[in-house]
């Protein structure tokens, strides 16, 4: 039985820091990341189209396809597992062009997204869907930074420590869902 290769990595990511990652490897990710899903991606795309500045600088950053359940009193965040990534596929290449280096979600990506990942030397991580309390344990702070009217779909800035992820698509375009 081949053991999983495990990497510890900190955001912001660079082409160099993600170079050793291969599809199927495990990653413990730390640093600041941002949550965004369907409605927030639609807004980001509209802002890019209009030439507006975005709520956060995408360079080297990671977006987590997440809208958590509400935090109970005294807790940092509620359950925090990933949502399906394919729904964001149409928005992703433009964000990668602007310097986004990583996405966290679940399920396979389109050919266009994988091509854009290779072109921009980025990485797509998979989190385990339905392991949402476990995922929340690696979030040490959460703060809403944009689109409060989107409520649970607003953009959160999340500080994470050793979030357990798997490399689903690496910078060379190897895809765990096709291996």
């Amino acid at each position: 039985m081949k053991k999983l290769r495990i990497h510890e990595l900190t955001v912001p990511l660079t082409a160099g820091s993600i170079a050793p990652l291969k599809a199927g490897d495990k990653v413990l990710l730390s640093g600041i990341i941002y949550s965004a899903r369907d409605a927030a991606h639609k807004r980001l795309a509209e802002m890019i189209h209009r030439g507006d500045s975005l709520p956060f600088d995408l360079a080297g950053q990671v977006i987590y396809y997440l809208s958590p359940s509400p935090a109970k009193p005294g807790m940092i965040i509620g359950s925090s597992g990933p949502t399906s990534s394919y729904r964001l596929d149409s928005y992703t290449p433009a964000l990668l062009e602007l310097g986004l280096k990583g996405m966290i979600g679940k399920g396979a990506r389109s050919r266009e997204v994988i091509d854009a990942i290779v072109k921009n030397r980025a990485v797509y991580f998979m989190a385990v869907g339905g392991a949402a309390v476990k995922m929340a344990q690696s979030i040490v702070s959460a703060r809403m930074i944009a689109f409060p009217d989107l409520e649970t779909e607003a953009i959160l800035e999340l500080k994470i420590e050793k979030m357990p992820l798997f490399v689903a698509v690496d910078a060379d375009g190897s895809d765990i869902f096709k291996i």
């Binding site: 359950s79 597992g81 949502t83 869907g129 949402a132 476990k134």
Partner: peptide, 21 residues
């Protein structure tokens, strides 16, 4: 293993197993 561990955490903390309720 993560899914099985998550069941225990959700039960203990009375939190939803999945954020998509």
């Amino acid at each position: 293993e993560m899914i099985l561990e998550n069941h225990i955490l959700a039960h203990e903390k009375q939190m939803p197993i999945c954020q998509d309720c």
